[in-house]
């Protein structure tokens, strides 16, 4: 296998401009060069306005770039792809469907025969530990459970690539850390590529093999840091603190004067 063959996502000189209603132009993202190898868990982190959400939307095919190159598996990204599933912060669950029905949705869209779809949905629910809640509606379960359902819905269609746009941002700190750990074990079991957007530096260090630091005005990549720590990472570890210090320094969040 050559070096390029294992590249999952490739961005070169990627740029996104928005035209505002008044005719002005805003540069959301400029000069982004990034290569994500297959199977990597990479975190995009930065303050609001740094273009991290724009970047993940471009990768997921919800937006089209205004410049540069963006390919996944060597093909230019043109539209959303059922093999590349996005997980949203507000879950995107259908309130009129049960938990089970929500997990079935992607399989139905793909035309998977009913019996097989049910078995796969059941399996996916098992992975996130939600079998007991299968026949509840989304409004009856907690935020953490909702996000597990969204993850199960994605896993059911066995995507090679997962995009997660601040998926745990609306959850309390305890639930967030538990879901981070669950996500890591799912990722280690499945081996899919994950692009994870967050503004939480600790979350980025806990999850990412690499952390892509982004800066605003205009949105761009500032630095890419390899997190060289084995999983599961102890959040109270000395190494963890060192990476934390490095990231804080990079974002000028240290009070050293």
């Amino acid at each position: 296998m050559t070096e390029t063959a294992s590249i999952k996502i490739l961005a070169e000189g990627l740029e996104k401009r928005y035209r505002s209603a008044r005719g002005g132009e805003q540069v959301a993202l400029t000069g982004v060069d990034l290569a994500v190898p297959a199977g990597e868990l990479v975190c995009l982190v930065g303050p609001s306005g740094c273009g991290k959400t724009t970047l993940i939307k471009l990768m997921a095919g919800f937006e089209t770039p205004t410049g540069g190159v963006l390919t996944i598996d060597g093909r230019p990204v043109a539209e959303p792809d059922p093999d590349h599933i996005m997980i949203f912060q507000d879950y995107g669950l259908f309130p009129w469907r049960t938990v089970f029905g929500n997990v079935l949705f992607g399989l139905e869209a793909r035309g998977v025969p009913s019996d097989e779809a049910k078995a796969r949905a059941q399996e996916a629910l098992q992975l996130v530990g939600l079998c007991a809640a299968a026949y509840k509606h989304p409004h009856e379960i907690s935020g953490g459970m909702k996000q597990r359902v969204a993850i199960a819905r994605a896993l059911a269609v066995e995507p090679s690539l997962l995009f997660m746009d601040e998926p745990f941002g609306a959850l309390d700190a305890f639930t967030r850390m538990r879901l981070q750990d669950e996500l890591l074990s799912l990722w280690q079991g499945k081996g899919s590529t994950i692009v994870f957007v967050t503004h939480d530096l600790d979350e980025a260090i806990a999850l990412g093999q690499r952390v892509v630091l982004m800066a605003a005005n205009p949105g761009r990549i500032q630095r890419i840091i390899d997190i060289d720590m084995p999983y599961p990472r102890e959040r109270t570890d000395g190494d963890f603190a060192a990476y934390r210090h490095e990231l804080f320094a990079e974002f000028h969040l240290l009070h050293e004067g």
């Binding site: 919800f62 959303p80 792809d81 259908f94 949705f105 992607g106 869209a109 269609v157």
Partner: peptide
Amino acid sequence: VYLKVAANFGADPRMTFLRVIVPA
């Protein structure tokens, strides 16, 4: 987000209309 989810999972226009837009 409902429409994005439908598009992401590859739901065709018919399924999007009948199984997402109408119930939503």
